[in-house]
């Protein structure tokens, strides 16, 4: 067994420290070492997006990042999305539009959708669909997911002006 390494990072704005096997993924570290089980593992190979997090401002699959790579980096997960007990507009719109059924894909979709709206506040439906193509949802057929994202984008634009 390789020696565990000590990693310091910032997760959802808070400094964290953990020990990790060099072969472990960031998803493993989040879920098993930091107790942040909101990021899900649907495939472990980058294909489903359920593990989506934002790493230093970029949307990534945490199952395709080594935990040791997080040294000194900023990680944002679903657990950091709401402002305390106030839901992010995307979370609120997902609820209002019934954009989740089983909810397993939902954390990843929300994180990915937030990353989209951070760079493109006014996406077209097609842009939203392509941006989210790495987030598989088997329950909803995406219809309500896309509606929720578009509606949240509209609301966020309102807030901005």
């Amino acid at each position: 067994m390789s020696k565990r390494q000590h990693i310091s990072a910032v997760v959802n704005g808070d400094p964290v420290d953990f020990l990790t096997d060099p072969g472990a993924t960031l998803l493993d570290a989040l879920r098993d070492d930091l107790g942040l089980t909101g990021s899900k593992e649907g495939c472990g190979s980058g294909d489903c997006g359920a593990c989506s997090v934002i790493l230093d401002g970029r949307l990534v699959c945490s199952c395709l990042v080594l935990a040791v790579e997080a040294e000194g980096r900023r990680v944002e997960t679903i657990e950091g999305m709401a402002d305390g007990s106030k839901l992010h507009p995307l979370q609120q719109k997902f609820l209002e539009h019934a954009a989740l059924q089983c909810g397993f894909c939902t954390p990843g979709l929300l994180v990915a959708a937030k990353a989209l709206l951070d760079v493109n506040p006014d996406p077209t439906e097609s842009e939203a669909r392509y941006w989210l193509a790495g987030n598989l949802c088997r329950c909803t057929g995406y219809d309500k997911v896309i509606r929720a994202v578009m509606d949240a984008a509209a609301e966020l634009r309102q807030v901005r002006v």
């Binding site: 879920r31 089980t37 679903i78 999305m81 839901l87 997902f94 609820l95 019934a98 989740l100 909810g103």
Partner: peptide, 17 residues
């Protein structure tokens, strides 16, 4: 809004793993 919704959009809901 579904009663288990907030748990599921905040990542708190506990799934099998």
């Amino acid at each position: 809004v579904r009663p288990d919704g907030a748990e599921k959009v905040t990542g708190k809901a506990m799934y099998g793993a």
